[in-house]
């Protein structure tokens, strides 16, 4: 990417929720620049804050949640300051669209698939019936629905899970957004369908010049779709870099743990690496490196002070004290070493 333009810039964002009289901090001073035209993956385990973080870009936080401090800059404007629904409607759907990957709940079972896509086309592109229908069928073609003319007249229940998923994406695309966020639920789709959807998103990104954010808990699935990967833990981005940098040269112990627990990297007959313990309780203040209590190789300082970002390359940084020049050398697990060797080997090749 030649001098990437920043599409969305998030700075020191803090998001809190009130729950039964207590306050929970779900996002803890997270910062992120999203570049125009890139595809970014946000990876992290359940509860790490992926959905809350991205929903805040569209003003979709639940009623008991709020942006406590920090900024979200979109086209020169700090949208974190938006107060009214009217302000958000300028952005939501139009500029930033979100696909919730639970196609059953996002579609209206009583309306034909074509109607649902066409409504979005009419609403956001202000086209007349005839024209809108033509465009709708074109979009259905684009998302890979065969026989789009006859499929137009069918209802969601006549579609398979994977096809429904495509319809949901079609609706998001129909609004002609700049930024498309796909939030994947923990329960994975079938492998084949998942791979097809990821492929589809890649193609659509080109055709519609979209910037895409793909949210997942499975680092294993994003090697191909993502230009960059942001690893999220306990409401903060602990490592970010180009896809190759994060896979072949991971620096944060949490990224190591995520990578080495992938069965693809496991050795048959031996136990798979597993992350002990649970993420921190976000009702309390998190001290130091939030991952330290689960990190068997944690340093003393990890429990005391929050690490800043250390730069690994101009495009790669991680929040871990291991990268401090004063830190003792900490060896990554065996599977991470293998990945590093692969990178080194092929970089020279």
């Amino acid at each position: 990417m030649a001098s990437p333009k920043i599409k969305l810039s998030i700075r020191d964002l803090v998001i809190k929720f009130k729950l039964r009289g207590q306050v929970l901090t779900a996002i803890r001073e997270a910062s992120l620049d999203i570049y125009e035209g890139e595809s970014l993956a946000i990876v992290g385990e359940s509860g790490s804050g992926k959905s809350v973080f991205t929903k805040s870009f569209m003003g979709l936080l639940d009623g008991n949640g709020w942006i406590d401090s920090g900024s979200i800059t979109y086209e020169g404007e700090d949208i974190a300051r938006f107060k009214t629904e009217k302000e958000w409607l300028k952005i939501r759907g139009k500029k930033i669209a979100m696909v919730f990957q639970d196609p059953m709940t996002s579609l209206n079972p009583l309306k034909t698939v074509g109607k649902q896509v066409q409504e979005a086309v009419e609403l956001h592109q202000g086209l007349k019936k005839e024209e809108a229908k033509r465009l709708t069928i074109e979009i259905l073609d684009d998302v890979g629905i065969p026989d789009s003319e006859s499929r137009y007249k069918q209802f969601p229940h006549e579609f398979s899970g994977g096809m429904r998923q495509r319809v949901v994406i079609a609706i998001a695309i129909a609004c002609n957004p700049h930024l498309l966020i796909c939030d994947e639920p923990t329960t994975a789709l079938d492998v084949t369908i998942q791979a097809q959807i990821l492929n589809l998103l890649k193609n659509l990104k080109e055709k519609y010049s979209l910037t895409t954010i793909y949210i997942t808990h499975d680092l294993g699935v994003v090697a191909n779709v993502a230009d960059r990967i942001a690893v999220m833990y306990a409401g903060d981005i602990v490592e970010i870099g180009n896809s190759e940098e994060v896979f072949y040269n991971a620096q944060h112990p949490y990224t190591w743990a995520l990578l080495s627990s992938l069965p693809q990297l496991g050795v048959k007959g031996e136990p798979l690496h597993s992350i002990k313990g649970t993420p921190p309780n976000l009702f309390y203040e998190v001290k130091g490196d939030a991952f330290a209590p689960r990190n068997p190789k944690a340093l003393k300082i990890d429990f005391v002070e929050k690490p800043p970002y250390f730069e690994v390359s101009p495009t790669h940084k991680a929040k871990t004290w291991i990268l401090d020049p004063r830190a003792p050398k900490v060896d990554p697990p065996a599977s991470i070493k293998i990945l590093r060797d692969q990178w080194g080997g092929r970089k020279n090749a």
């Binding site: 998942q194 699935v221 090697a223 896979f247 992938l262 990945l339």
Partner: peptide, 14 residues
Amino acid sequence: SLLSAIPIPDPRKE
């Protein structure tokens, strides 16, 4: 086809 869809945690191979 099933095997071809397995995600590979390796950007270059992927």
